[in-house]
Design a binder for these strands. Structure first.
Length: 497
RNA sequence: GGUCCCAUCGUCUAGUGGCCUAGGACGCUGGCCUCUCACGCCGGUAACGCGAGUUCGAAACUCGCUGGGACCA
């Protein structure tokens, strides 16, 4: 039987990082097993519908690389894939379950339930439904039904014995049936609860591996009992360990970013996020931790998912992001950087290939920008860092303290002289051979023949071009800047120092 | 409070009774490279929660404790 798994989120508008990891593991189980991954929208518990939530969910998942074989947006043979469109189905199966004696109607009012709980609390008893309606006679039921009393449908739990369930990660788990509550399967308004809809859908959609986060383990025996009550074949259950925040608690907004959209906007690459998240609770057989999406699709192994919770610490995410940035093609890097540069008002798009430098009004091509961005490729950790890293390319007048031009213990006069001499030499370099390699050779020769310290020439030179203590190398910057602008910046520096 | 789960460096983890004076990655750190930063390379730092047992031998198996977490209230 081929693998069929599903990712079944509630559409809240944003994708939580924990959900991303659940989606990833689930998707990778499907792909590595040559199976299908289905998207199902679980919206029966929605307080209010969030506009466009499903679309943005699908979009952000596609951004990370997850595409579904079936779902509300692509269809499939097991639809509909949105639970609110399946209420007739749940209704039908609720009746079946009632007939099979796996559930019963409960007419207790919310007020009575509240009183009951209050009493249980006072007597320090576990607060559970007291099963008053569990053994109503057929006559009583039809009478109350006819008089129009509202009712919910509750699952009929065994009164004693053990419920032994098996999880793909944790192994055997044993529950004492007497602790199980006759919980609600269908609410009085006819809407099923998560527990019920989930089981019915998983069965009807022929899901082979029911995957979800650890936090659902408490309802695991109830699910298993439902399958048994229906007489359905049991799928395999896989509960992923949870992800905790640094303090050890549930991963929530209070401790920093937890939404995938936030990471995307900050300039994290999907590959990095995926690589990082997949390692939260899973580890490859060999120790190669740099794994492309494609490699994961092939080599993911469900058996290597660990059992203990992982803490969400983004240090390593930054490392992965830097790594993936360094390995991008220059053109691709520019494409992802462009929105940030434009947004920061450094440049403006004027046509397909033309960009105006806002400060100077000069128009440059994609080529030029590619050169600029490439210089910071090995330095930035996030795409958004590019703005602060390359801004010196886009200003008219560099602002820096003149003393910065002075290298180590040299004097201002020496700095000026060295810059001045270098200026003359560079002036002689023809524009068409103005590139980093030529500059390196020319300047190298000059330093050698003049018997100077490398730093005493290169430091003032580089600072004159960048205005910074730390920056890419002098030759590369000069090369990208071009002859004219390089000489102009040097001239200004000479006057200042 | 009840039920369940989990427990190796700061973090992610490898580890299925002898290959473990515990391996990898990130972080931190020393060095090399170098005009600076970054990259890269070489090195260092640092962990089996505690206590019993099983065994010739335990990070690994069992039990208890402790700690953390999830769920229900």
């Amino acid at each position: 039987m081929s693998v069929r798994v599903r990712f079944a989120p509630s559409p809240t508008g944003f994708l939580h990082i924990g959900s991303l990891r659940t989606a990833l593991f689930t998707y990778l189980i499907a792909k590595s097993g040559g199976g299908k991954c289905i998207l199902r929208i679980e919206d029966t518990d929605q307080e209010r519908e969030v506009e466009g939530a499903v679309e943005s969910l699908i979009e952000i998942l596609r951004w990370v690389g997850i595409v579904f074989d079936e779902g509300p947006h692509v269809g499939g043979n097991y639809g509909p894939y949105t639970q609110t469109e399946r209420v007739d189905i749940y209704d039908k199966y609720a009746r079946i379950l009632l007939e099979k004696d796996g559930a019963y109607r409960c007419f207790c009012t919310p007020e009575r339930l509240k009183e009951m709980r209050e009493e249980q609390r006072i007597n320090k008893l576990p607060t559970r439904y007291d099963r008053r309606c569990r053994n109503l006679t057929d006559a009583e039921i039809s009478e109350r039904l006819e008089s129009g009393e509202a009712f919910v449908i509750r699952q009929k739990m065994p009164l004693d014995g053990d419920v032994v369930v098996y999880d793909g990660i944790q192994g055997e788990i044993r529950f004492d049936a007497s602790h199980l509550d006759d919980h609600v399967l269908v609410k009085s308004n006819g809407i099923p609860t998560y527990q019920f809809a989930n089981v019915v859908d998983d069965h009807l959609m022929e899901i082979t591996h029911v995957t979800r986060a650890d936090e659902w383990i408490p309802s695991f025996p109830k699910n298993v009992l439902l399958y048994r009550a229906f007489g359905w074949d049991m799928p395999e259950f896989v509960h992923y360990p949870v992800i905790l925040n640094k303090g050890g608690g549930k991963l929530s907004k209070r401790h920093g970013d937890v939404m995938v959209e936030e990471f995307r906007d900050k300039g994290y690459l999907p590959d990095a996020l995926v690589n990082f998240c997949v390692l939260l609770g899973w580890h490859p057989k060999d120790d190669n931790e740099i794994l492309s999406f494609h490699e994961l699709e092939r080599n993911f192994d469900m058996k290597s998912i660990g059992a203990s919770a992982a803490i969400f610490d983004t240090d390593k995410l930054d490392y992965f992001n830097g790594y993936y940035i360094r390995h991008m093609l220059p053109n691709d890097l520019l494409s992802v950087c462009l929105p940030y540069l434009i947004n920061a008002d450094l440049i403006k798009a004027v046509n397909d290939d033309g960009f105006e430098i806002v400060k100077s009004g000069k128009v440059v091509g994609r080529n030029y920008l590619e050169g600029v961005v490439a210089l910071e490729q090995e330095r930035i950790k996030k795409i958004s860092d590019v703005v602060g890293a390359v801004d010196f390319f886009f200003v008219d007048e560099l602002e820096y303290a003149p003393e910065l031009l002075i290298w180590k213990k040299m004097t201002a006069g020496e700095a000026r002289t060295n810059l001045d001499n270098l200026l003359k030499i560079l002036d002689a370099v023809p524009v068409d051979s103005w590139n980093a390699a030529v500059l390196e050779e020319v300047i190298g020769n000059h330093i050698k023949s003049a018997g100077l310290n490398v730093g005493s020439v290169l430091w003032p030179f580089r600072v004159s071009l960048t205005g910074r203590k730390a920056s890419p190398g002098a030759f590369e910057v000069a090369s990208v800047l071009g002859k004219e602008e390089t000489l102009r910046r040097m001239g200004k520096a000479i006057k200042q120092v």
